[in-house]
Design a protein around this nucleic acid. Structure first.
Length: 503
RNA sequence: GGGCCGGUAGCUCAAUUGGCAGAGCAGCGGGCUUUUAACCCGUUGGUUGUGGGUUCGAGUCCCACCCGGCCUACCA
């Protein structure tokens, strides 16, 4: 392909930039700089301070004062206010904003004229305050670090269009403080989670994303292909089965914070790729894990927000442990006014489910039906935080049965804000029983359940070497971030959410 | 996938019953020695998401398609 074949490209490689009046003007400024022997894109700049440091170190200055202290700052020009014989600009770096000030008497005055909002500059000069008391840097020397060619969004309203904010997150971050804050909080939440598990002796690992058997969850995988091996592969839908192999290998406490891929619809709470924390704790059971979850979440909230009281969707939530425990059958019966239990005839369950908006498929047993009714009728009302327990074995092929009723498993899900935050159980470690569960799933698949769990022979082999009693856990990290940042759309906490290509 | 709503200048938004596509910001020119979304004067800038149709005339009405938001369905 030749250069001129490229869509909209000119032989000079400047694409459509020359076509647009606003970018053409800035390209001309780049050329003018080059003609004057200046590099519009130099290699480095020696910074001595960021905006927030200047603010904290010179907080007590009176209006119209000179500090006598010279700094070198660098950032993006957000705004220029030219008064004729003096000028102001706002410089933004990651730590915050600082004003630049210059007068006709200053050496830096001349270089101010050609600045555009969006340019990256380095400035050396003295810290001072204006007559109005605004902390500023008096420009002694100004260096262009990267000339911006595209105009910034409107300075007061910023970039509002949700689609553009997601497609051009770089612009969103430039102009919207809330987006920068969500990014910081996201980082803090992940760090907080990592700390909470490491403090308790969990080891962080990384397991394969590319798998031949996409197990550990009930979901449709993305398919891909390994060319050299001429082999179809899947992107993982969970990290569970590999982490349990590590428990078999004798790793005491293990966790992974990893990207998971599920080939399902998108919604304000679902992105095709998302981040999940999974942890496996040998010799523990699901009640130990329950305490771990409520403590870890509270610790993270305390660490990043300074409180365990959060506001979500207009509702005040208290994340302070302990969280209430409710039985799945109990709470579903209470909400629907129907007594659900595992002894009810399948036809009765089907008919009652239909009355509650759930059409049971042929492969479903009573457990699955009640689970579906719970999700349809109860889940959205669980503002939480609350642990729901007593899940049917039918919908939990990897969880250990309860000794008092093998049709139930030792499992809980954590709910908050009307959606599931986490899922955990005492891990099934009986290899013979695990094989039976897999075979039941295979029968469900044969009956048309395309999310049934596939049989993983290597995982069964691992169990046959002996896995100690283990409590396991999965937490939707993006959702935890949504909870702690008050965001109601996952697309606001994922930096680059899945979007269709632009037409 | 289905339903509802939306897409107008680089950005934020107007546009009466179908009747000359506008404003602010950004840009350009000029003025201004303490601004804070600076201000004042002047000025450039449009494939109204795309493609059809109705009409003397379409941003506006009709059809199809693209993209997005919300709801809904599956999932964490």
């Amino acid at each position: 392909m030749t250069v001129s074949d490229r869509d909209g490209a000119t032989p000079e490689g400047t694409s459509d930039l020359e076509e647009h009046r606003l970018t053409a003007v800035r390209l001309a400024k780049v050329e003018a700089m080059r003609s004057a022997g200046l590099d519009p894109y130099p290699t480095r700049f020696e910074r001595t301070a960021v905006a927030a440091e200047i603010r904290s170190e010179h907080s007590g200055m009176a209006p119209g004062e000179d500090s006598g202290i010279e700094v070198a700052v660098a950032g993006r020009i957000m705004n220029v206010r030219d008064m004729g014989k003096l000028a102001f600009a706002v410089l933004r770096d990651w730590s915050g904003d600082i004003q630049l000030f210059t007068t006709a008497a200053d050496d830096g005055f001349e270089s101010f004229g050609a600045l555009d909002a969006g340019d990256w500059v380095g400035v050396t000069g003295e810290v001072m305050t204006t007559r109005r008391g605004e902390l500023s840097v008096r420009v002694r020397e100004l260096t262009m670090l990267a000339k911006g060619l595209r105009p910034l969004p409107e300075k007061w309203h910023g970039l509002q269009d949700v689609e553009q904010r997601h497609r051009m997150r770089y612009v969103d971050l430039i102009v919207n403080e809330e987006s920068r804050e969500v990014l910081r909080l996201r980082s803090a939440v992940v760090r907080g989670l990592r700390d909470a598990f490491e403090r308790r002796g969990f080891i962080e690992v990384e397991t394969p994303v590319l798998q031949t058997v996409p197990g550990g969850g009930l979901a449709k995988p993305f398919e891909t292909h390994h060319n050299a091996l001429d082999m179809d592969m899947y992107l993982r839908i969970a990290t569970e089965l590999h982490l349990k192999r590590l428990i078999v290998g004798g790793v005491d406490k293990v966790f992974e914070i990893g990207r998971i891929f599920r080939n399902e619809g998108v919604s304000p709470r679902h992105n095709p790729e998302f981040t999940m924390l999974e942890a496996y704790w040998s010799l523990a059971d699901y009640t130990d894990v329950m305490e771990l979850v409520e403590k870890a979440v509270a610790e993270v909230a305390e660490e990043v927000l300074g409180t365990t009281l959060v506001e979500y969707g207009g509702v005040s939530l208290d994340l302070t442990p302990p969280w209430p425990r409710r039985g799945l059958f109990e709470i579903t019966s209470e909400t629907t006014g129907v007594e659900w239990d595992l002894d009810m005839p399948i036809d009765t369950a089907r008919a009652l489910a239909l009355e509650h908006g759930v059409e049971a498929e042929p492969s479903w047993g009573v457990g699955k039906i009640v689970m579906e009714v719970f999700e349809e009728q109860v889940e959205a009302s669980l503002s939480g935080p609350v642990f729901v327990v007593d899940y049917p074995a039918e919908v939990s092929p990897l969880a250990k049965s309860r000794s008092d009723d093998p049709r139930l498993v030792e499992r809980f899900e954590a709910f908050v804000g009307g959606w599931e935050l986490g899922n955990a159980y005492s891990e099934l470690n009986d290899p013979v029983e695990q094989r039976r569960r897999f075979e039941a799933q295979a029968r469900a698949k044969a009956l048309g359940d395309d999310e049934a769990h596939p049989i993983d022979e290597d995982f069964l082999k691992a169990l046959e070497y002996g896995m100690p009693p283990t409590g396991g856990l999965g937490i939707g990290v993006d959702r935890l971030i949504m909870l702690l940042t008050g965001q109601t759309s996952i697309r606001e906490v994922v930096l680059f959410p899945h979007l269709r290509p632009e037409g």
